[in-house]
């Protein structure tokens, strides 16, 4: 078992996500930065879908009741394991009784702690991911608090073989400030100027940006005037309520990028979608950080997705 001594600012248990339920209004949840989550799992010999602890801005303090192998990936976080400082992107052996104490993230927003065997909570609808709005998944459907006790799953590998593994520096991502998008969905609603401004503006991440959505500050975008269609409602930002892709950008007037715990549909015009590999990068953008959107084609988006998958495969193979 792992005992939570301090849950940090906002830490939840996440896996790859809860898919197949979007049609009932259930967002996928799951690790906001799927790349870091998967690398952390790979470092400790886990399959990609094992659950990790996602820590946002502030790290947790944990006490291990049993020997374990752990790895940190994602936002850089200083911390101590017993008397030693703990490295990022490297697997580390933990002795029963050790305490792990993590500080604040210094670059990036989210750090993943993987444990060999995975955090073992009861799956809900096929996933261990926490979805706090309705209180399901993870540990009691909520963020971690002091006193919580987390079980660790069985690891197929011998712990002696797992510690001390790291990934090469070239695979450690740089948290870039350019986020690639594909324009589309209800993008016809924007004026030509606003469509251009979406990609030329330096957008600032607001303090509210969280697992539900990244609200951005910049310019106000304008809509083409029209007689609103029946059922949409009179505001120019309104459309007849429709499904929102994860990663889509809706524009009440200033953009909100929908993240992994977002609403699945509604009546705001969506004008573009962040490509799947860059959703990981956006999840590492911090409050007050500036970002830019770069419009790419669907083909480029698929190519970037393929590269991400191949890179993860290369990392995993390199560790075996």
């Amino acid at each position: 078992m792992i005992e939570v001594l301090d849950g940090g600012l906002s830490s939840t248990i996440q896996d790859d996500g809860r898919f197949g339920q979007y049609h009932i209004g259930m967002p996928p949840s799951g690790a906001m930065d799927g790349f870091a989550h998967r690398v952390a799992n790979a470092l400790v010999g886990n399959d990609a879908d094992r659950a990790t602890i996602e820590m946002t801005y502030g790290g947790c303090d944990l006490r291990f009741d049993e020997n374990a192998v752990v790895a940190l990936a994602g936002a850089a976080m200083d911390g101590d394991l017993g008397e030693e400082s703990i490295p990022m992107w490297e697997s580390v052996a933990v002795d029963a009784g050790d305490e792990l104490s993590l500080e604040f993230a210094t670059t990036g927003a989210r750090t993943y702690l993987a444990v060999a065997g995975g955090i073992d909570v009861e799956p809900v609808m096929g996933s261990r991911s926490t979805y706090t709005l309705v209180g399901i998944g993870g540990h009691e459907g909520r963020t971690l608090e002091a006193g919580d006790r987390l079980a660790v799953g069985d690891s197929a590998a011998d712990p002696a073989d797992l510690a001390g593994r790291s990934i090469s520096d070239e695979h450690v991502p740089e948290y870039d400030e350019t986020i690639r998008i594909v324009l589309g969905l209800c993008e016809y609603r924007l004026t030509d100027d606003s469509r251009e401004e979406l990609c030329s503006t330096e957008w600032k991440v607001t303090p509210e940006a969280d697992r539900v959505g990244y609200r951005l500050e910049g310019v106000e975008l304008d809509f083409e005037p029209r007689e609103q269609p029946f059922g949409a409602g009179p505001d120019p930002s309104n459309v007849v309520d429709l499904g929102y892709p994860v990663g889509s950008i809706q524009v009440p007037t200033k953009p909100i990028v929908l993240m992994r715990d977002a609403v699945t549909g509604g009546g705001y015009a969506t004008v573009a979608t962040v490509i799947s590999p860059d959703r990981d990068l956006l999840a590492q953008c911090r409050t007050h950080q500036s970002i830019r959107f770069e419009a790419v084609s669907v083909e480029e988006a698929v190519e970037a997705r393929r590269r991400r998958r191949e890179r993860l495969a290369e990392i995993t193979e390199g560790l075996q």
Partner: peptide
Amino acid sequence: MTTHTIEAPMPGV
């Protein structure tokens, strides 16, 4: 006497 400055550990309000 020494002056101790408290810094913000993270961004926010």
